[in-house]
Structure formats: C-alpha cells, structure tokens
Amino acid sequence: MIAQEVIDARSAPASAPAQAGMPKKSEIPDDKDMLRAAVELTRDISVAQPRIYWPDMLASAAVGYAALAGAILLDNPWAAALSGVVAAVALYRALLFIHELTHIHKDALPGFRFGWNLLVGIPLLTPSLMYEGVHTLHHARTRYGTAEDPEYLPLALMKPWSLPVFALTAILLPFALLVRSALLVPLGVVLPPLRHLVWARFSALAINPGFRRRPPEGDFARMVFWQELGTSVWAITLLASTFLLGWRPLLVALSVVSLTAFLNQVRTLVAHLWENDGEAMTVTAQYLDSVNVPPPALLTPLWAPVGLRYHALHHLLPSMPYHSLGEAHRRLSKHLGVDTTYAKASYAGLAPLMSRLVGSTMRPR
C-alpha cells in the first residue's frame, strides 16, 4: 500500500508548501553565503578523532549487551522490561555508527569498520554492507528526494495512515534480517536468481520500495562476501541455539532489537520534512527539507544520537564527524544569525516535528 502511495505522491502536481503559496522545494536557489561559511568555518574540526569514536562505540555496545543479558536472565518482569529498554537505547546508539562508516575517509579510523562489524553489525544482523554504497546515494546532488533516492519517501504528501504503518513495520525488521541471513543468503549460493534478488531488493537499509541495488564490484564485493559469510554463520548459530536454550532468549533479543528499529524509524520520520515531489533539488533546498534539533532539547540525544540531531547540517557537511557537528552548528549560528536560511532548518523537538508531518498529510491536494 505504501508503494502505491509513493507513486501517487510523486505524480502529484505540487507539494504542500507550493499549494500554500510558497516555492516548491525544487525551485529554492542555493544560499551561497551559507554554503561558503559552512566549509570555511569548520575546516579545523573536520577530522574524525579515534579517541572519541572508539570509547563511544565500545561503551554503547557494552552497556547494550549487558542490559540485553539482564532482559533475558532477570526473573522480575519489570526489571527485565527496564533492562530491555536500556539495551534498546544503548544498542541503538551503537548501531548508528553505521552512518559514520559511510562518510568517514577509509584511512581515518584504522580498524574501526572491522571492529564495529565484529562487535555490533554482525551480532545485530546489520553489517555495514547494508548501508555503505547506499546512503551516499541519498547525498548525491541529483538524487536526493527523487525516485532514485533509496532513503526518501514523500511522506508529507501521503495519506495520514502511511505514517503509523511506516513506523510499525520496523518492528518486523529483526525477524526479516534473521530469515535473510540464515536462509535466503545461504540458499542464494546455490540459486543465483535468488542471490541476485536478495541483493537487489533486501541488502540495503532503504525505505524507497522502488530502489534496486546494483551488484557489488571490486574491493567492496570482497568485503560483502566476508560480511555476508559472518552474518549468515551467526544467524544460523542463533537459530541452532534454540535447541539448547529454548526460544525465549532469542525472542527477547529480537524484541529488544525491534524496539531499536522502531526508535530509528521514528527518528527517520522527522529527519526530513519529506515535502519534495520527486524533482532534483539544490543543496540549500535539501538542507531546508532536512532537520536540526539543537539544544536546549534535552531528549534529542536519545532518539537522534551520534550527531543525528544535526541532520540538516550533516547534509551541508556530509563528511563532518559526528563529534564536531555541535561546534559547527554553534559557529554557523553565530556567524549567520537568526534571520537567515541556516536558522530555518532548526526545530524545537520531536513532538513539533511529528505534529507538522501529521498536519502535512492531512492537507487537501
């Protein structure tokens, strides 16, 4: 149903803002002063710092797995449930380092990609292959917001029921990932048509149902092989463990990861305004279709961790490490001021953004 909504929305003659007398997203010109300032004011903070990345990722994973063990082992249901929530939030932060892996220079953090995959990506059935080579398409100048963008849906132009369906489908993601890695990928070794289908349709963390992934090549293809092998062996081991431990540990773990996936899907709902109707956009238009939720919003680091509270700024500076985005935002805000294009992408929090999105879906078209 959502796939048909995408088709209908992208065939609509105009977006909601255009109907209200504002220019369409695709017609917004670039603010060259803002783009120049974003580059010039942040050169000295553009290097990823291993002393920040490694402890943050390792601590998030350690807390997440310890809390997950509590959720599985504790007898008190309330204590187990609380432990499960802590696990979901901590593992959510650990998982979102996959976003950083797609942008940092390959030589910036030696061993970090391997370490993250070994400790987080493969155990949670989400190796970095599912995002690398995909997310960068979302940042391509001519792809963002179009039918070729794997991470864009015109949600603001769709029906109101699309939003809860979009969020709740994430709950099934861990179960789908388990089937993919334990069954479909191994079967694809002996059934080439299935292998091609799984890669094209089910190997990317994409939300655009029309996206089809191209076959991997070169060094990336070799990395994919080892990551798929490791994830499949782990997935089969998880299923085999039920013969010794029963189904409860695995179901609890999958439920925790389901909550993690739901948190990410909620964040995705407010990462952009989702108001583009399918045409190519300028960098400034892409920025204004994206969202910053800067301080003093207190809960934002929980639902938009690892720098994702500055998602609009990230679209101006995709390679800026997450630990520098707060300082970059402060510099640009001070330099450009409040009555500027830069300030227009900042919002107060999750609730106002959700209210705006829901209101957009209810506008007559």
Score class of each variant (00 low, 15 high):
338 V>T: 04
239 L>W: 05
42 T>L: 07
169 T>C: 04
301 P>Y: 10
118 L>H: 12
136 T>Y: 05
102 T>K: 06
334 K>L: 12
222 R>S: 02
18 A>M: 07
57 M>L: 07
111 G>Q: 07
175 F>G: 00
75 D>V: 04
36 R>I: 06
34 M>V: 15
108 A>R: 01
363 R>A: 15
258 S>R: 02
257 V>W: 00
214 R>W: 09
185 V>H: 09
118 L>A: 13
53 Y>I: 13
38 A>G: 03
29 P>V: 14
204 A>T: 14
218 G>L: 02
210 G>V: 08
198 V>S: 04
8 D>I: 05
23 P>N: 10
164 P>Q: 11
276 N>R: 07
111 G>W: 07
322 Y>N: 03
43 R>L: 07
7 I>A: 09
240 A>G: 06
339 D>T: 15
262 F>P: 09
110 P>V: 13
242 T>A: 05
199 W>V: 04
287 Y>K: 02
326 G>F: 04
193 P>Q: 09
148 E>R: 00
138 H>C: 06
104 I>K: 01
70 G>L: 08
174 P>N: 10
216 P>V: 13
293 V>Y: 02
224 V>R: 05
351 A>F: 09
244 L>D: 05
279 E>W: 05
169 T>V: 14
268 T>C: 13
250 L>A: 11
292 N>S: 11
264 N>T: 14
64 G>W: 01
221 A>L: 01
141 R>F: 04
277 D>K: 03
173 L>Q: 12
334 K>F: 05
167 A>S: 04
213 R>F: 14
168 L>N: 15
214 R>V: 15
258 S>C: 14
19 Q>P: 00
259 L>N: 05
165 V>R: 00
271 A>I: 11
267 R>A: 13
335 H>N: 03
85 V>D: 09
169 T>M: 11
271 A>P: 10
146 T>S: 03
175 F>A: 12
302 L>P: 15
214 R>M: 14
175 F>H: 05
156 A>N: 07
257 V>G: 00
15 S>I: 12
100 E>A: 08
212 R>K: 11
309 R>L: 12
343 A>Q: 07
317 L>H: 05
14 A>V: 15
227 Q>P: 14
166 F>Q: 09
263 L>P: 01
111 G>R: 04
75 D>G: 01
298 L>K: 02
347 Y>G: 03
277 D>R: 08
223 M>W: 06
227 Q>M: 07
198 V>Q: 08
148 E>N: 01
260 T>S: 01
125 L>Q: 11
31 D>M: 09
202 F>H: 04
69 A>Q: 03
55 P>I: 06
103 H>Q: 10
110 P>A: 10
362 M>T: 14
349 G>F: 08
295 P>I: 15
22 M>L: 04
329 H>I: 09
227 Q>N: 10
278 G>C: 11
238 L>P: 12
27 E>Q: 02
360 S>G: 03
233 V>N: 04
115 G>D: 06
312 A>D: 07
81 A>P: 02
340 T>Y: 01
211 F>Y: 15
76 N>W: 13
